[in-house]
Design a protein around this nucleic acid. Sequence first.
DNA 1: ACCCCTGTTCGGCG
DNA 2: CCGCCGAACAGGGG
Length: 264
Amino acid sequence: MPELAEVEYFRRRWNTGIGHRVVRIAMHTRKRVFRGTDTRALRRQLTGARLLTSEARGKRMLFRFSSANWLGLHLGMSGRMQIAAADFRAQKHDHLVLYQAERALVFTDARQFGRVQFHHGATAPGWWENGVPEIVSEKFDRDFLDRFLNRHRKAPIKAVVLMQSGFSGIGNWMADEILWRAKILPSKRAGRLNAQERNQLFRATKFVARESLRIIGPDDSKLPRSWLIHERWREGGKCPRDKTLLHRATIGGRTTAWCARCQR
DNA sequence: ACCCCTGTTCGGCG
DNA sequence: CCGCCGAACAGGGG
């Protein structure tokens, strides 16, 4: 589930715990989500620390705690976050639970493609700043897009829109939504897009990111009925524009849905 | 049983 | 060296 907008939704859920101390931590320390992470330091430092702020960049989240502590989260394919009661009992896939006096902050991830990172230090961890502009920021401009498309000119545009080094936070459904809105064939090589197509791609990317973030929720139910997402997995799914049957194939290593009539 | 999956990383290869 | 592609990771659901 988690792409840009869902990540933002989950981050805000945990914000309920801002201003409150962590009194106890439950962790499945040997699980893959903690790969490369010092879980003993995490437990030692975060116990007693107060959650102060949080931030999201693309699909990544960073939670700042008192006493110079930082927690990074990535939801992978199946990660979710929730607020639970203070007497919450961690189940099999609840790999990290931060207990506060009046609630529990729960991180759940069945498939464990997600990740938990911990950092102790006066400033944000080195891995946080990666120089990739947020789609909704002014730094993601027409120039940046052009340079990125040129750098990856041999790859199918679908694969390029999935690259986190350029399209921060865009995942599979948003990529299909963007290319459908921009009327561009997903298999088209990035370098073959003309100026008009690049303009359309730019506008569609901004639009889908901004609208998804505005409508933000735990799933796609609040997104307009006119969006592709409601049709793309359905057997016999049709293009919301011209009602022709959608095509489906693996492009850029991922299942891709598109309308062969309006996407060229 | 078998196949699919809203993600990222890594090794092979051109 | 650059960059594309498929495989691997782990588990649940159809």
